[in-house]
Simulated assay, not measured.
Amino acid sequence: MNNKQITVIVAIGILIAGFLALGPLYIVEEGEQVVVTRFGQIVTVKTDAGLKLKWPIIDKVHQYPQKILSWDGEQQRIPTAENQFIWVDTTARWKISDPERFYQRITTLTGAYGRLDDIIDSSVRAVIAENSIAEAVRSSNLINETKDEAAFIGDTGAVEGELGEEDSFRELMTMIAFDVQHDSIEKGRRQLSDLMMANAKDDVAEFGIELIDVVIRQIRYSDDLTEAVFNRMISERNQIAEAYRSYGDGRGRELLGQLERERETILSKAEAESQQIRAQADGEAARIYNEAYSQNIEFFEFWRALESYQRTLPNMDKTLSTDMEYFRYLYDSQGNR
């Protein structure tokens, strides 16, 4: 090999080393996609991972994620169809489905998040403003299927068992049943989320973005609406408490009346039994007196007179007599005057 050949080989090696030093190779990582541009024009799009080749200096490589990305929106204070303001916090998932269009319309991820902010926030405001607060908060009408007794008492059997008044208890449940009646919904929170995504999906597709879903992460009442809701809840609970007090007062009066009737019945029965016993005792006493009288009439009259003296004379300070029949045994033990 002569000097000329060596010189050529060295020159070629230097050119190759210089070419490689300028960076003609690039790597597409797993989960990435690449848009290669030359003088601002798209040359090629690579979506498969591996080692790729480009023209150094004049070609630029723009790397974008192929994976699903998350978008978190700012909380918005939005009026509902009833013109009641609520705070709505939403989130979404998206990905770059057309990297060529994405580069042409947006170019950067920062620009993509700005577009998503405008489009999704606008869709959220439009959907919330067209629907009632119940549609935004609830997902079903299951709450209207809750039993009144389960909502307020829990163990109705214990109350009914103690009082034995199922009709009165049912009447109380009717008085407070209003508390578990809620407006029925036709769409619900999940369907509103689907509407938000449907409204925004076509708009973001123009930028090479595929919107996977939009989810209402949190809804809370504004301060003025919160106070109104609390006041309504307090008013309803006060009505329920008043219904319980009224029910208790009525049951109390009913039980006291029942107690008084039972007391009168017991006393009347006892009085009748006592009168009967007294009559029997008087009859028995009369019978004994008659038997004693018939056995010794004079002694019976003498004994009756002594019993009478024993009851009346101690109460007399002075006794003046004109030969009364009552005191005949005081004049003579035989009762002769």
Rank of each mutant, 00 (worst) to 15 (best):
R311E: 07
V180D: 00
N2H: 05
Q191S: 07
V180S: 06
Q63C: 13
R115K: 06
N3H: 07
E30D: 05
I185N: 01
A228H: 11
E236G: 01
I176Y: 01
G114Q: 15
R190S: 13
L109G: 11
I240N: 06
Q191N: 09
A241Y: 13
A92S: 08
V45S: 03
G154M: 14
Q275G: 05
W71V: 07
A243N: 02
V8S: 05
V35T: 01
A126S: 14
W55S: 14
S193H: 04
A129D: 06
M316C: 10
S168H: 11
E186V: 14
N2D: 08
R304H: 06
S168E: 02
D202H: 00
T174H: 15
E30P: 01
M175Y: 00
D89C: 13
S235Q: 09
T319E: 06
R101K: 09
I42K: 09
M1F: 07
D317E: 10
T108L: 10
W303K: 13
P314Y: 07
I234P: 04
R125T: 02
G161Y: 14
T312L: 11
A150R: 14
M197E: 01
E171C: 10
L15I: 14
I143G: 04
S97V: 08
G40P: 03
L313F: 11
L320F: 09
E160N: 05
Y331I: 15
S294E: 14
K67F: 01
R261Q: 09
A205R: 00
K46M: 08
R115N: 03
E291A: 10
A126R: 01
Q280E: 11
I96M: 05
V8W: 02
